[in-house]
Each structure stands twice: as C-alpha cells, then as structure tokens.
C-alpha cells in the first residue's frame, strides 16, 4: 500500500512539473510582453516611457532568452517561489495564500451541498420505481448542468438577496455570504454527481447480489443503502477528483458575480493582465489540487472495493 501511494506521489510530482512547463511554454509563446500590457492596458493614449519599460523588463527577466527564463523560473518553482505578480508587485505565493482559504471554504461548502443534493436526488430516483415524480427528477440533472452559473448566480441574488433580503449580495462576510455562492457553485457539480450515480444505481439494481438480497426479503430501502449504494458509488468517487477541479474553474465566475476575493478572481485578473508569474502559480496550484485529490481518491478506492486493493503477494 505504501509503495502504491509512493508511486502515485511520484506520478503526481511529474504532473506538477509537466503543468508548470506546459504553462510556461504557452505563456512564453504569447506575442505580447506583460510589462507593456501592464503599462498600456487601460487603452489610454499616454506615452510609455522607454526607460521604465526597460527597467521593468529587466526586473521580470522578460528580456532574457527562453531557456534562461525557463531555467530561472524552474529553479524558483522547485523552491516554491513563483516570483512577483507584475501588476500587483507582491509575491505570487503571498497573494495565492491570502486568496486560497476563501476559495477553499467556498469550494468545501459547495462540495458538501453538491454531494448532498446530487446524492439525495439520485437516491430518491433510485428508490422510486416510476411515475411522474421520477421522470421529473430524472430531468433535473441535465437541466442543472446546462444552466450557466453566471445566470444561476444572478437569479439566486435577485430572489434571495435583492427581493427577500435573506443573504448579503457581496463579499466575504462569514457564513451568510457564503451560502448563495456555494449553492451556485454546487449546482452543476450536483447535477453531474446525480447523473452518474443514477446510472450506476440503475445498473447495480440488476446485479445478482441485489436479486439475492431481494429474495432474502430485504426491504427496497435497505437494499438501496446497504448493498446498492456502496457498489454504485465508485464511478461517482472517480468524478469527485474532477469536480474539485471544476470548482476551481467555477470559482472564477462565482467569485466575480458575488464580489468575493479568492483564487477565481485571481485567475480572472491574472489572465486579463497577462500576469505570467501569477498565471504560472495558479496553473501549478490547480495541478496540485488535482494531484492531491486524486491521491486521496486512489487511497479511498480500496476501502470501498476490495477488488482494487493493491496486489500484495497472494498466498
């Protein structure tokens, strides 16, 4: 088991390096240089001072050839240093460090809501045998997944903040301000979890052991929770790794709509300003999140399904 995890960790490190390098190459290939963007992005017709441009270029090493820039960046990356955000003039790690707890809190709550919402939706449809309610529930996941979170967020704001006044419209202000953004962020993820779980529940109902359980006289509810769910949850678990990544992407929209500071807003600002050190840091951060979540998922699989336990010498 330890060796299995070590191998997974080594693979994770490779993924991080690959993400860093791919990010660097793509950003390097962009035609403009971030220093000029920083000085000219307002669209103002003012003149750029060549001295200022040259000094900033040297400061951010954008005047060096590709391999030198890559070398400098890689050496810093290994040390956990992503340099300084160009427009913000502050260390990237510091800025990400400040934003991360906000997004982590948002994503965690959204994740809980998504699992509860998606899970109960799937279980309810799995419990019902047919009828209008079941058909209605079955149509919900495709609907939820197709609503743009931008729109869903504004709709929730309109109803629950502007009209009913239950929640504040903006900001990082404790749990009350976390509810609407978390629900917005949870909706598409809940839909995906529900969709996959519904399908695997349906398949599992046809398995022989379910028939056996039924023959033994177990109630439908008991079979659903005790036998079917555990078996059917594996595909959904695989999804979890991906949904956490989706949450990061969704945070870009949700944090903007709800005026929250967080990693999503950093991404939005960094991309708009072509803030290369910041984008690099964020690319590696998302890769890191993926790697960690997948490691956790890999570690959990065997607990749910004995068949996946890493081969130990079979005696």
């Amino acid at each position: 088991m330890t060796r299995y995890l070590l191998r997974r960790a080594a693979q994770g490190a490779f993924v991080l390096w690959a993400a860093f390098t791919a990010g660097f190459v793509i950003l390097y290939l962009l035609p403009s240089d971030p220093v000029e963007i920083m000085l000219a992005s307002t669209g103002s017709m003012g003149e750029l001072d060549p001295g200022a441009v040259a000094a900033l270029r040297a400061e951010y090493h954008v005047d060096e050839p590709f391999y030198v820039q890559y070398g400098i960046a890689l050496w810093r990356f290994v040390q956990g240093d992503f340099g300084t955000s160009i427009p913000q003039r502050l260390p990237v790690t510091e800025l990400i460090g400040q934003a991360l707890p906000e997004t982590a809190g948002l994503a965690a709550l959204a994740f809980v809501i998504a699992v509860l919402l998606g899970g109960s939706l799937a279980l309810l449809t799995g419990y019902l045998r047919g009828g209008r309610l079941r058909r209605l529930l079955l149509s919900l996941p495709p609907l939820l997944v197709s609503i743009p979170s931008f729109w869903a967020g504004l709709l929730l704001l309109q109803v629950f903040s502007f009209r009913l006044g239950w929640f504040p419209a903006i900001g990082n202000r404790g749990l009350a301000s976390l509810v609407l953004p978390a629900v917005t962020l949870a909706l598409p993820t809940a839909a995906i979890i529900a969709q996959v779980l519904i399908k695997s529940l349906r398949q599992t109902w046809d398995e022989a052991f379910v028939v056996t359980a039924t023959a033994k006289g177990a109630s439908r509810l008991r079979i659903l929770f005790v036998d079917v769910l555990r078996h059917a949850s594996l595909p959904s678990l695989t999804l979890v790794g991906m949904t956490v990544g989706n949450m990061l992407a969704g945070a870009i929209v949700v944090e903007t709509v709800f005026s929250r500071l967080g990693v999503g807003r950093l991404v939005e600002q960094a991309v708009a300003a072509q803030d290369i050190p910041m984008i690099q840091g964020l690319v590696v951060l998302s890769a890191l999140v993926f790697v960690v979540v997948n490691l956790v998922v890999d570690a959990v699989y065997p607990l749910l399904d004995p068949r996946i336990r890493p081969s130990r010498a079979v005696t």
Partner: peptide, 10 residues
C-alpha cells in the same frame, strides 16, 4: 484583448 493591443502597439 488588452494583450493583443499591447502587442500591436509594440
């Protein structure tokens, strides 16, 4: 994009 514009003005 602002980036395109900066590149253009180079």
């Amino acid at each position: 994009t602002p980036a395109d514009n900066a590149a253009m003005l180079k």
